[in-house]
Design a protein around this nucleic acid. Structure first.
Lengths: 139, 139
DNA sequence: TCTTTGCACTTGCAAATTGCAAGCAAAATT
DNA sequence: AATTTTGCTTGCAATTTGCAAGTGCAAAGA
């Protein structure tokens, strides 16, 4: 475990030290919106993350308490990753990225519904989604 | 100018292709909240970006229409960088990162006031700040 | 029981990116 | 005219990434 070296005390900079790369937020996206929870799940995502990078990011996110690693209830061969409260609290950040992207990129059909819901009533969307995510922590 | 290679059609992934690194959002932060506008200004930020990385990031952000490069009204030696509308629209993303960070990091005194204002009334903060930023585009 | 498959990584290595120091040309200052 | 400022570019070493292959363990199948 390496010591986390901050570049500055700026909250944005500190945040980017945690998730400021091309992959971490995609893992969080998969956990938050698409029900993924295992190493194999993340590997299947269409962006095609390399296996060593995935292992490394999962470790960093775990060290920073964004996710936690648990035994998989269905199989000893698998691990189950899930968002912590701190990770769930990133929902507004991810949501705003979705809403920004919606203005400037074309949105694939399978994601459209989710974004439209967020667009229609942002607060309601975030409250509902956050409640669902926190419910998972009780299990 | 290199062609932008998307990893997928996912809006989060496309967004990270644009600003998903340790430096781009810090440049945007400097433009958005701290009135910085020149190469030298960004270089002075406490995180200490390398000169070649800064030049490279400014170019990428310009190519992606997040910022634009103009003649500096006061000096021909300087360039003036400013956020486009597309860049200004990232305000909610930056604001939510601030609010997330506020929950999990200790906040330096000089930034505290800004974050407290956002925390007290997020919508009002964003409306006011966005209005100020858009006013700069008219000049 | 033995073999095969699935899962979660780790390792080795080449390629790309980053960080640091130095250099450079045009403009501004002295 | 000489020096400093500004916005870069260049060279190179160090770090990080991406790809392919390999490893160890658990569960399933023959």
């Amino acid at each position: 475990m390496e010591t986390v070296k901050k570049r500055s005390e700026c909250p944005i900079s500190c945040s980017l030290d945690v998730f400021g790369d091309k992959w971490s937020l995609l893992i969080i996206r998969d956990l938050m919106f698409w029900g993924k929870s295992t190493y194999g799940d993340f590997l299947k995502s269409e962006e095609g993350i390399a296996t060593n990078i995935l292992a490394s990011r999962l470790q960093t996110l775990e060290e920073n308490k964004i996710i936690e690693k648990l035994e998989h209830p269905g199989s000893k061969a698998k691990n189950l990753y899930r968002l912590t409260e701190k990770g769930i609290d990133l929902l507004p950040v991810l949501t705003e990225i979705y809403l920004w992207a919606e203005k400037f990129f074309s949105i694939p059909a399978d994601i459209k519904a989710t974004i439209d819901e967020a667009k229609k009533d942002k607060e309601a969307f975030m409250q509902t989604t956050m409640k669902d995510l926190k419910k998972q922590l009780e299990e």
